[in-house]
């Protein structure tokens, strides 16, 4: 976004006019290619706010820990606004206490891929239009931005923040040139045979170290007690064997059926680079096909698994 000062001004305004008690946004990270979520309570700090392709988290996740009656402003990209709506539908947050500042998003960048493509350890990174300018010590390197957009942001169909209190900046269509880019993991997974698919799934999950970063980074994972933490009944082994990791990945994804906002925060949080967006994407696609349900599309509609109706009686073949 070219002119971010407006967002800072708006954040300062809502803080000074006591519309909110806190604004959640991003600030510059302590290391290159990263940024840090930031919780602002005083106007002066709003200068530190930034937003770039290195802001990998979904800020809505931080609403879980905040008291429901606290008035909070959030810098909202489309994913955050969709997550807020999904949380509102599930009665996890009070929409009246939130102030959403909608901002355009240009797609989130994969810092690991950038680091791999760089000629050495990156000491500074900046976005500029459709380029990423890297500094590696004294050397400079330019990368093409589109090639480093994460899988979940490619072909993003929800670029516009929904239900925001104020929209700043215009949504410009991303020039993706997706034809030149290699297939995403999800696309290539779908085209494989059943045995190959299982093989790929096994290879991905066996790297899992069960740090649950995917769970904690997810705006829609808010259970106070997760099924994997249960001792009795014991749903999944707590080991890093397939008995534990496969069950974790399958059930985690399945609990997101029709609820996942497709932000991809889980995959970006994973230290072991495990693909998981393809799982929730498949489930969400099915929900759309079967029940015409899409997350965030409607203000009232509950996810398909939360609605049971006798109208289903002819849906399945008996």
């Amino acid at each position: 976004m070219d002119d971010f000062s407006q967002v800072r001004k708006e954040a300062a305004r809502i803080l000074s006019e006591k519309i909110v008690d806190m604004v959640i946004g991003f600030k510059q990270g302590t290391i290159p290619l990263k940024s840090q979520p930031m919780f602002i309570t005083s106007q002066e700090d709003t200068d530190k706010l930034i937003l770039d392709g290195f802001c990998q988290n979904n800020l809505a996740v931080f609403l879980h820990d905040q008291p429901k009656d606290k008035r909070i402003g959030i810098i909202c990209r489309a994913c955050e606004s969709r997550a807020v709506r999904a949380l509102v539908i599930e009665h996890q947050v009070n929409r009246e206490n939130l102030y959403l500042i909608g901002v355009p998003c240009m797609g989130i960048l994969d810092w690991k891929k950038i680091q791999d493509a760089a000629d050495g350890p990156v000491t500074n990174a900046q976005e500029s239009g459709d380029q990423i300018l890297l500094e590696i010590g004294d050397k400079k390197q330019v990368l093409i931005r589109n090639e480093f957009i994460v899988d979940s942001c490619r072909g993003c169909g929800h670029r516009e923040p929904i239900d925001v209190d104020i929209q700043i900046g215009e949504i410009s269509p991303i020039e993706m040139n997706a034809d030149n880019l290699p297939q995403t993991w999800g696309e290539s997974f779908k085209s494989k045979s059943a045995d190959e698919r299982f093989q790929l799934f096994t290879e991905e999950t066996e790297r899992c170290i069960r740090c649950y970063a995917c769970r904690e980074a997810c705006p829609m994972c808010y259970c106070t007690e997760c099924f994997v933490d249960h001792i009795a009944p014991r749903w999944s082994e707590s080991m890093v064997t397939p008995g534990g990791t496969q069950a974790w990945h399958i059930i985690r994804a399945f609990h997101q059926t029709g609820r996942c906002v497709e932000c991809g925060a889980c995959e970006r949080a994973c230290p072991m680079d495990i693909k998981m967006v393809y799982l929730t994407d498949k489930l969400n696609d099915d929900m759309k096909k079967e029940y015409g349900f899409e997350v965030g599309e409607n203000e009232e509609k509950q996810p398909p698994f939360a609605t049971i109706t006798l109208d289903d009686k002819n849906r399945f073949k008996y």
């Binding site: 059943a194 698919r197 299982f198 399945f254 489930l283 099915d286 079967e290």
Partner: peptide, 11 residues
């Protein structure tokens, strides 16, 4: 849906 999901993963 769970069946479809397991089939998607190779069952």
């Amino acid at each position: 849906e769970f069946k479809k999901f397991l089939v998607f993963l190779g069952l």
